[in-house]
Amino acid sequence: MVRLQPDPFLNELTSMFERTTERGSVWVTLKHSSDKSKAQRNKMKTTGENIEFKCLIRATDGKKNISTMVGAKDHQRFQASYAILLKARLTALKKRERKDKRKAADSDKKLEKSKKKSAAQKAST
């Protein structure tokens, strides 16, 4: 498990997605973690120290493991970049049947709705 800074982690995650387009999967795990062993935590508990928790993010494609930590200060920036990354990579999912509706995009919403209905009916017949 390689611990990376958030930005290199996202870069590496991107290449994992690229490597698995033909075959394979990518797993991304989020976990609430103090990044300390149980023994350390117990020690801190008994001495009354405050245990700091962060969000641990791990990713694997089955071959390579990477991980990073984000805390309360930087998780929003990370989650925004992560969301953009996912949007760019999760492209094999099915879209709702809208492919032919681009022409109608400029017209009135009501019109669009009725067109969709009629198109759906045509498609089904």
């Binding site: 989020l30 609430h32 309360a72 996912l86």
Partner: peptide, 26 residues
């Protein structure tokens, strides 16, 4: 589980919920 792109959008919200919960505490 899903194969729908629209669920990926929903997942984005869940991601944000978990990032917040995990980074800021339960």
């Amino acid at each position: 589980r899903t194969d729908q792109a629209q669920d990926a959008k929903k997942m984005e919200k869940l991601n944000n919920i978990f990032f917040t919960l995990m980074a800021r505490g339960p």
